[in-house]
Amino acid sequence: MFKIFFLVFFYSNLALSANFTLDKFKIEINSNFLGEEILLFGQKENLSELVIIFEGELKNARLYSKIKKGFFWTNQTKDLERIPSFFAIFSSPKKSLNELFLIPEITNKHFLVSNYSEELYKVRSALKNKGLYFEEELENVEKDLYLKKFKIPDNIPVGKIAITFYEISNNKVVSTSQKNLLIEKKGLSNKLELLLSEQSIFYAFILIIFSIIFSLISNLIFRKR
């Protein structure tokens, strides 16, 4: 399957230099969604270094840090702005965050890897715990081709994930391109979310009716004779 992708991709991009694509650009969340595997692949030149960053939509967030006070672990909270809902860094060869910090084109664009701050370290750790942060190396296959398989988790927030491709030489970006991966709810999931946000009173009404009906039914079934 992957080979077919590669062949199509390789021959359609022969004239181009380094580039990337995905096996899909849209993920639909329905009632049996368990997360989805994504295949990232592309072409690169022999000596070029690649960094591909997936960045979800920026949202307000609350960060909880565990702190020990006496015998107890307590939460210290901090409200933060513009935190991406998903973040992944794929590179070839593998680049550490310290190496990325030296590339201004990347640090200026992606706040989460903009500096050495302790706060951003905590945010990255927290996202990693939720499966919403990756730092991995691209796998080289064939001569000039690379790929990476990874899983988008089931707790992925809906919205657009911007994928930015950087080709780097001597810590300077020589070419860049961008594509989007769309995460959206479909079917029942989408209808329920819309109903809750647009007709919340009707949503409440249906829930109450359901509650009463099921209560009555179970009471009838299990009632003592």
């Binding site: 307000n60 967030a61 565990k66 107890f72 672990w73």
Partner: peptide, 15 residues
């Protein structure tokens, strides 16, 4: 839960 060492030191929730 208050005494045990937390499995993760940091958590994040979108608001």
């Amino acid at each position: 839960d208050l005494f045990k060492i937390p499995s993760s030191m940091f958590e994040i929730n979108y608001v």
